[in-house]
């Protein structure tokens, strides 16, 4: 095999790029993509705060794939020949629930702003409002289930109702997790994770769950 870059090797050793430095010579050996690795290597923290944000991004990608699997199953299943599909008339309370959840995202944004403005009281107020709206949403979803059940529509009644229960159930479980996280930030001073990071990460999750619900809701209504 012909070698391409022998002569400059001694140079490479002499010039010796330090940490974080990139040099573009050579096929991979000494390359740097300008991505310098852990920047804030302040010995005090073991895990940089941004790892939590990265982690939440990654988690949301995984959760998105999980729901997209349901969604693609829904689309395929609905349009199959002999699908035995009876479009589901969703309970009206779902509209209200959707509004409540959207409102919770707004109050959460408010809380986040208050926190940035270092207004602790305002933050706690809006944060608690968000938690309350979240609980209200879950309660509303349970009422929707009960209304359907009262009409005799259960999980196994029809593929459309099966998907309805699966969508709302899976989303509701994820949202309950979000409520727990909201309560945790409200009542427990976080030690390992800085408070700001915790607030940011929980907000990301909550907004995502809100957006996801709006998408699922539109799918259930428009795509039935």
């Amino acid at each position: 095999m012909p070698s391409t870059i022998v002569t400059e090797e001694i140079e490479l050793i002499h010039s010796g790029k330090g940490p974080g430095g990139g040099d573009s010579s050579g096929d991979g050996g000494n390359g740097g993509d300008g991505d310098g690795g852990r920047g804030d290597s302040s010995g005090a923290t073991r895990v940089p705060q941004r790892a939590y944000v990265t982690g939440m991004f990654i988690a949301l990608a995984g959760i998105l794939m999980f729901f997209m699997a349901f969604v693609s199953a829904y689309i395929v299943r609905k349009d199959m020949p002999n699908s035995a599909w009876i479009p589901l008339q969703g309970p009206r309370i779902l509209w209200l629930n959707t509004l409540v959840l959207i409102a919770s995202s707004l109050t959460l944004g408010r809380a986040h702003n208050r926190f940035k403005a270092q207004d602790e009281e305002g933050f706690r107020h809006w944060w608690a409002t968000t938690t309350f709206l979240g609980i209200l949403f879950v309660a509303g979803q349970i009422i929707a289930w009960r209304q359907l059940a009262a009409q005799g529509i259960f999980l196994a009644s029809n593929p459309s109702s099966s998907f309805f229960y699966v969508f709302t159930g899976a989303h509701g479980l994820h949202l309950l997790g979000g409520i727990l996280a909201l309560l945790y930030v409200q009542f427990r001073a976080t030690r390992k994770v800085a408070r700001g990071t915790a607030i940011e990460v929980v907000s990301m999750y909550w907004h995502f769950m809100d957006g996801l619900w709006v998408f699922l809701f539109l799918l259930l209504y428009l795509g039935r």
Binding site: P19, G28, D35, G37, A51, G62
Partner: peptide, 24 residues
Amino acid sequence: SLLGALNFIATTIDLRAPGMSLMR
């Protein structure tokens, strides 16, 4: 495996030593 994958990705992205670029 989802939990594990999350950890691996975040670790590789954010916990590299100084100088450990992607191409290193």
